[in-house]
Design a protein around this nucleic acid. Structure first.
Lengths: 201, 201
DNA sequence: CGCGTTGTTGGACAAGCGCGCAACGGCGGC
DNA sequence: GCCGCCGTTGCGCGCTTGTCCAACAACGCG
């Protein structure tokens, strides 16, 4: 195969890994699958990554990190906490495509067995929570939210979104994506003492 | 090893599978592990199950089903909805031991790719939600809860518990089990219009 | 041009996997 | 007491896994 710059090749490996993981799951993705997807040898992957664990972690980090960045941008584009929370909700459930959530499910399950994956999953999850918490803190300071414990409120909101989205992705028609958005909006209203219309205008 | 009746042996295999899965996860449980745990040969497992997938599905169903039964019993032992909800909460987070939750994580992740696992996971998840919903409906009828949509309220409560417990199991010390219980209690009070009175028993 | 650096190859390796199978052995019916 | 059934064994087949490594080839520099 063509000789690539180190950063290009590393990127190519991550991309190929995600393409494979998309169709057969993160945990079931093997070195040879990724190599075949790239059209190279399997030895090449170990020239860039110490272990398969690291490959999977890097791939997950890339995909999930990009979603986090998008959410941050969407939040930063708004200026009052109310709109920011609305933007966050819009960003989470619908934009967080089924396939990324499936990656999260894989990562949570694999976390127990793959230290590198756990480290990434843990860090990104905390970052998501921090994003929500900062919005809440700003809202409380600005007087438009009411929350005794912004840290806890953020965890509750994020965990509910995770739990609901999980049902959509893992069990299909048990509940719908529209339910997630509407119900999470209700929960935010109750949690922060405000009214949030999370539905797309 | 001693010769057992078919149903006894089947049961022994399921039990041994769970014991192994408890320490290394459902997905990482192999035929040889289970055989070693039972103290028999690996061939014996294939005499009772067509494939390893069937073994894992049976084990998950048994473990998760038993937890559901226990929760149902705990709820049935109480008579007013308020105590029932409290019993449910106490039953869920702490008694739902880490390793059963890990089983659920595996099941949710595998659901997309294993129809048999999805069917079991889906059915049991709906049963859990129905358990909560029935408590809420009874509470609303009895006048001690206030809920516009018990169906949605039950999904919200259960999903938040799932999402929070997930963090404990997948990420260890990010949040604690005590946080889950306390936060979910707060959420339940807010969700059902109960004034936050006695959070600590 | 020559030469070192380095991206890349392709296969070796041991370990582990699910699964199948011929043979053993203890129990119950005749 | 014998025999057939069947739970059980122990092994091995074919394959896949992650990891490693010696050899090859393309590139930049002197």
């Amino acid at each position: 195969m063509a000789r690539l710059q180190p950063h290009e090749r590393r990127d190519a490996i991550v991309q190929a890994t995600l393409r494979v993981a998309r169709s057969q799951g993160l945990g079931a993705t093997t070195v040879r699958d990724v190599a075949r997807e790239m059209g190279t040898s399997s030895g090449l992957i170990h020239h860039y990554f110490d272990s398969m664990d690291d490959v999977l972690a890097a791939a997950f980090e890339h995909a999930a990190g990009r979603d986090l960045e998008r959410a941050r941008d969407a939040v930063a584009a708004e200026h009052d906490p109310h709109s920011q929370l609305e933007a966050f909700m819009h960003c989470y459930a619908p934009a967080q495509s089924d396939w990324t959530m499936q990656l999260w499910l894989d990562a949570w399950a694999e976390a127990a067995r793959r230290p590198a994956v756990q480290a990434v999953s843990r860090r990104l999850n905390r970052a998501w929570q921090a994003l929500v918490r900062d919005i809440i803190v700003a809202g409380v300071a600005g007087g438009c939210f009411r929350a005794d414990d912004p840290e806890a409120a953020a965890w509750r909101l994020l965990s509910m979104l995770d739990g609901l989205t999980l049902q959509v992705v893992a069990h299909g028609t048990l509940i719908s994506r529209a339910d997630v958005v509407a119900w999470a909006g209700d929960a935010a209203h109750r949690e922060l003492g405000i009214s949030i219309d999370a539905r797309r205008p």
